[in-house]
């Protein structure tokens, strides 16, 4: 990832105040893929805001992540059509399989899971997007198969 530090990001904002909070959070996430606790503490100090407030705002928006992203991004669609076709089962088994919840990154750093509202491919429901690639008509077995392949590739490369 890029090398622009949070200190430099904060320098991009002239006299940053409360209203710069979201742009700063976005810039930080753009650089590092997520927002760390340490970053929120520094941002709070700079803006003279309690860190609870910074976390409150950041956790309000779906766009912000609090964990370093894994090697592979798995997005599970939980839109209406996918829901009807059983996406919650897919999500449950995925969480069980990789060992982390949505919004988190697995301990081995391989996967991060994200829930999205609708990816606009309802005819393929339930849909899971893995690293930008759409997988149609998903179920628990198919999901595990994909993960297995990704793990295999990763281990072979190592």
């Amino acid at each position: 990832m890029s090398n622009i530090s949070l200190t430099d990001i904060l320098k991009e904002f002239r006299d940053p105040a409360r209203d710069s909070l979201i742009p700063i959070l976005q810039r930080e996430q753009q650089q590092r893929g997520f927002i760390s606790k340490e970053a929120m503490i520094v941002i709070g100090e700079k803006l003279n805001l309690p860190v609870s407030k910074v976390y409150g705002v950041a956790s309000f928006y779906n766009q912000f992540r609090f964990n370093a992203p894994g090697l592979h991004q798995i997005q599970v669609c939980r839109g209406t059509a996918c829901h009807v076709k059983g996406s919650s089962t897919v999500l449950d088994s995925l969480e069980m399989d990789v060992g982390c919840k949505s919004g988190e990154t697995s301990k081995d750093g391989l996967f991060s899971i994200e829930v999205v509202a609708c990816v606009g491919a309802c005819s393929l429901a339930p849909v899971v997007v893995v690293d930008g690639e759409f997988h149609a008509g998903m179920d628990s077995t198919k999901m595990r198969k994909i993960n297995k392949t990704l793990r295999k590739v990763h281990n072979a490369e190592r």
Partner: peptide
């Protein structure tokens, strides 16, 4: 003037 707590999530 402490702000130890706030709303989290939505």
């Amino acid at each position: 003037g402490v702000g130890a707590i706030d709303f989290i999530g939505r």
